[in-house]
Amino acid sequence: MNKKMLIGSLALSLGLVSAGSGALAASPAVGIEGVRTVAVSAPGKEGPATINNLTEKSIIPLMVHAKAIYAYASRGGSEFNPELFNYNTVEYRYLSSDLGSKQQLMNYIKRAYTHNAAAFYLQTQFLEYNGRMAQPNVDLGNTLDYSRATARMVSKTAQTAVFELSVPPVGTTGVNENVVVKLKKVSGYWRIDVSPATVF
């Protein structure tokens, strides 16, 4: 058995990839306290974050996962040639079919965010038009590398937490940015309790 097959089999047995996907986990999940898996089967198909013991180490994979969800939604999903239209003098693009309805988009965002954070994000960043979800046809987001962030716990209870992250820019130069993140436990797992547009 060659090395690639061995690594793939190991990742599959550990639950880091879904059967048939072949893509490795979005972030290192093994050996970090409180992390079961934060797996990504394909762009936009992130598995739900399953962090139930939030620490200064385990919040980093959750933030990487949350940014991947935000990035996919903020670029409109999987469409490379989106369907465009104008509304109130603003150019909009429809989201891809996997995020095309309000419920689909909500369910997707809630993989890393609370219901309230997801609802606020949809209300402020998207438009439901002719029964489909759309967004302004612009590029959004920042160039911070959350995989290299460090975290400091500000406060934590059984159901809520606040962390301050020092996040370096992508690449080797630049100044770290401080980001404050509020979290809440939902059905046993931690979710970010602020809009993705606020954090990223």
Rank of each mutant, 00 (worst) to 15 (best):
M1S: 11
M1N: 10
N2Y: 08
K3Q: 06
K3L: 04
K4P: 13
M5R: 12
L6Q: 11
L6A: 09
I7R: 10
L10D: 01
S13Y: 10
S13G: 13
L14N: 01
G15M: 08
L16C: 04
L16T: 02
S18C: 06
A19I: 11
G20N: 00
G20F: 12
S21Q: 10
S21R: 04
G22S: 10
A26F: 15
A26T: 07
A29Y: 04
V30L: 15
I32K: 06
E33K: 15
G34V: 00
R36F: 01
S41P: 04
P43G: 01
E46G: 04
E46D: 07
E46Y: 03
G47W: 08
P48Q: 07
P48V: 11
T50L: 13
L54N: 02
T55K: 07
T55P: 14
E56H: 05
L62T: 02
V64R: 02
A66G: 08
A66K: 08
A66M: 04
K67F: 01
I69G: 13
Y70R: 09
Y72W: 14
S78R: 06
E79S: 15
E83S: 07
L84C: 09
Y87A: 03
S97A: 15
D98N: 12
D98S: 14
G100L: 05
K102V: 01
K102W: 04
Q104H: 01
Q104M: 04
Q104A: 11
N107C: 08
N107A: 08
Y108Q: 02
I109D: 03
R111L: 06
T114E: 09
N116F: 01
A119H: 01
A119N: 09
A119P: 03
A119T: 01
Y121D: 02
Y121V: 00
Y121F: 03
L122N: 05
Q123A: 10
T124V: 03
F126Q: 00
E128Y: 06
Y129L: 12
N130I: 05
G131L: 09
R132D: 00
R132L: 08
Q135G: 02
P136T: 01
N137E: 11
D139N: 15
G141C: 05
N142L: 09
D145E: 11
R148G: 05
R152D: 14
V154G: 03
K156T: 08
A158T: 12
A158E: 15
F163G: 05
S166D: 15
S166T: 14
V170M: 15
G171Q: 07
N178A: 14
V179E: 06
L183Q: 13
L183C: 14
K184A: 15
K185F: 10
Y189L: 11
D193K: 10
S195Y: 11
P196I: 05
P196C: 02
F200G: 07
F200K: 07
F200Y: 14
